[in-house]
Amino acid sequence: MSRSLPGARSGGRAVLDGGPSGRTSRLGGAAVLLCAPFALLLLGTVLAPVTYALYLSLFTERLSGLGFSGPSSVFVAFGNYADVVTDPDFLHGVGNVALYAVIQVPLMLGGALVVALLIDSAVARLKQVWLLAVFLPYAVPGVIAGLIWGYLYSPGIGPISSIAPIDPLGANGILPSVVNIATWQWMGYNMIIFYTALQTVPRELLEAARVDGAGPIRTALSVKLPSIRPTLFVGLVFTIIGALQLFTEPLVLRSFTGAVTSTWTPSLYVYDSAFVAGDYGRAAAASVLLGLVSAVLSAVVMRISARRSR
């Protein structure tokens, strides 16, 4: 599994650049001691579960004979995968997450970038205050962010339902509502990352742009943005992975509205299949698909990023 992922191989190459030179292998013993705890954790909590999920996804539980001897595992090859990808509930969840990602990823990252550029601009005062104010929601756990907004969306408690054009907890409003929660949570974090990267843009470069007659917007678009492109791509990868995993916020909103079904996103589908329906094979297949899509998407984005920055 791990060898077949392109991301792993491009990462392996990156090590070649910054490695130490001329060190002898007499240091091997200490290095093994320093690496062993993490290597064991990685093996036990990432590699083994991934392998186990792959194995599980190929089997299903069936009652044998008259059912007296209990269920037994039956090898079904890709049967579970076929079940999952033809299940309308799963496809509906995939559709929700795709629509969510198409709206949330550019909205949140765009917002973070605009705020970072505004704080970085020459005219901005009180930079520390803006930075910290916008960053604060990052300190709020996903469950609590979901609860706060759930109350704010609720008629009679929060003000939003009386001013919003559509019911934020209704069938049509629920997707924008979830987008808003995730944008609120993650905009400040990405803003700080982008702002930190903007601080490293060489001053001479900005000065040269000013001398050439470029205004602040022109400078931002043609000098600052290209300089922080690698950081933007890393932010994009993590946001996409996060979007595909969407779970906590919709689950919490289920306490406030019936508009979120128990299989509203693929992650909810996994949870529902495993712990409500008890179908581990199907849940494992959905998990593997989720992991695979997210790994492939991130690898593609990283590949594009590497090509651009060359």
Binding site: L5, G7, T45, V46, A48, P49, V50, Y52, A53, L56, I241, L244, Q245, F247, S267, V270, A274, Y280, A283, A284, S287, V288, L290, G291, S294, A295, S298, A299
Partner: peptide
Amino acid sequence: LVPTTALALP
């Protein structure tokens, strides 16, 4: 790159 929600079940 492996999403944590995909690891929870195994």
